[in-house]
Design a protein around this nucleic acid. Sequence first.
DNA 1: GACCAGATGTACT
DNA 2: GTACATCTGGTCT
Length: 207
Amino acid sequence: MIAKRTPDPRLVFDPAGLGLSEAERSFYRRATAAVARDLIGAYLARRWRGRWYAARIVETEAYLGAGDAAAHSFRGRRTARVEPMYAEGGHLYVYFVYGMHTCANIVTARAGRPEAVLLRAAEGPPDAPRLLSGPGKLCAAFGITVADSGRDLVGGHRIALFRWRGRRPRLGVGPRIGVDYAGEAAAWPLRFFDLDSAAVSRRSSAP
DNA sequence: GACCAGATGTACT
DNA sequence: GTACATCTGGTCT
């Protein structure tokens, strides 16, 4: 199956034109939960055929590596699919799941520590507010595929991340979604979201 | 809110 | 070979 790589034209938008600066390596090398939190309000951007496509991130989840039963790298699992999680913070880890969906993660921490942040949702355009309201939808709209797994976002020319330095969004925190199999780790408060965004799937902060 | 089908790559036996 | 997945959209209550 070949996933579509063309971004949705409604996402045309240049974050650099807004004066937003690209996130540096040091941003990603911090604690994973802190990166997940600070990604709320940042802009995911993709350059495609000379144009920028971007959207504001409103929901993320942190995955803490070998000690986290919900993470693909639990117990140090290291296979071809998961390998990008072991890269230096600032890389992309993309995987295919449920036979039809693609999910994008941003690798955090230092090389060798397989931690990452799942991008769950971003703010869609006014005429399609639900376009990016889920990890699979977000990837589909940006045209991100498993071929992008392992790509470096820092100094990246195709996919990048721009930080928003204005007022901080009102933040919600709660347990991660879809990881009920992970035992006690399923209840860890590692999901972060913008309380004021309509693209967020579940707003309750309680488990 | 609860429940469910759908489609297939990945991990593991 | 087999089980299951960092999901989505639909139906029913």
